[in-house]
């Protein structure tokens, strides 16, 4: 009970101080909010790109072109091998005739071209879907190499270029976000450090009196730490709010206007665990700043 009352005391005092110095405190809350907001922007974009990537990766398909004049038994053999491959999710045989049919439907204006050639130039093939656990570009390459070595397969075709590019972009976005975000987080720690320092200086006499009438060091320090945590938490909350507004009205619009948006739902708002991370991260930054400040400027307990 005593402990609960001590906590209640710290929280109450922290709120009073927060309100009393609201202008200065707005600065530290603002700095934290800006840094977490920027971090959040990058997180949103990279999370969304990731999601987009997953959608694309789901369509990672390899085409195994078969050698001309493959016998039915060879094909059955191939069928068996593909069926026993754990890296594959699905496979489908496309005969020469099917291929021709598709060609004609894709390119109607060229539909007479095969007739001119007298024989069907299109090879038979297997269209193969890669299982979810093997969709990383490196893994896809390994799978492709193995399939290319199979008897009766003349060539394996796949398109990883876009996926690789997007993976690179996501990594870049994350790195920029983390760099800027952590630089700003450090700046926030210093802002809080200085704001708390000002408060400590302003209350030097009061603190002295509290000590003289029997307040422990923890009791004197507590409110400052809680104040830092509150500043950080409020900064985190503010960042989340800004992020929501930015997400709703700016990011989506911007991406829609450059027609980067395949559908409306891919640019997701940061998920709830990230909300918690933003707010907790803010609190941590606040606690760190105030703890350093209190440690430095409230050092003498007598």
């Amino acid at each position: 009970m005593r402990f609960v009352r001590a906590i209640a005391y710290c929280v109450e005092e922290a709120f009073v101080e927060l309100w009393r110095n609201r202008l200065v405190n707005l600065v530290s809350i603002g700095t934290i909010a800006v840094s977490l907001f920027i971090l959040g922007i990058f997180l949103t974009v990279s999370a969304s790109l990731n999601q987009l990537l997953e959608g694309w990766a789901g369509r990672v398909q390899l085409t195994l072109y078969l050698e001309e004049g493959l016998s039915a038994s060879d094909r059955e053999q191939l069928d068996l091998v593909l069926g026993n491959s754990p890296e594959l999710e699905s496979f489908q045989f496309v005969s020469k005739e099917d291929a021709l049919e598709r060609f004609r439907s894709y390119f109607p204006e060229l539909s007479t071209l095969p007739d001119l050639l007298e024989s069907n130039p299109l090879p038979a093939s297997f269209e193969v879907g890669v299982a979810p656990d093997f969709r990383e570009p490196d893994q896809v390459r390994v799978v492709a190499r193995r399939l290319a070595g199979l008897d009766g397969v003349s060539e394996v075709d796949y398109d990883l270029l876009w996926i690789e590019r997007l993976t690179g972009i996501i990594e870049l976005v994350q790195m920029i976000g983390l760099t800027i975000g952590s630089a700003l987080a450090i700046a926030s720690v210093f802002t809080i450090f200085n704001v708390i320092k000002l408060t400590v200086y302003g209350r030097q006499e009061e603190i002295g009196i509290m000590r003289l009438v029997g307040a422990t060091h923890a009791y004197i320090r507590g409110p400052f730490l809680v104040e830092g945590i509150l500043q950080g938490g409020l900064g985190g909350g503010l960042a989340l709010g800004l992020l929501y507004v930015a997400h709703q009205y700016l990011l989506r619009e911007a991406l829609r206007s450059v027609q980067l948006l395949p559908s409306d739902d891919w640019l997701q708002f940061v998920p709830p665990p990230a909300w918690a991370a933003l707010i907790l991260g803010g609190m941590f930054v606040g606690l760190l700043g105030s703890a350093l400040s209190v440690r430095k400027f409230l050092a003498s307990p007598v």
Binding site: R211, G214, T216, H217, Y219, P301, V302
Partner: peptide, 10 residues
């Protein structure tokens, strides 16, 4: 010790 001073003062 410093940590006990508040209790003296109380």
């Amino acid at each position: 010790p410093e940590a006990k001073i508040p209790f003296l003062r109380r």
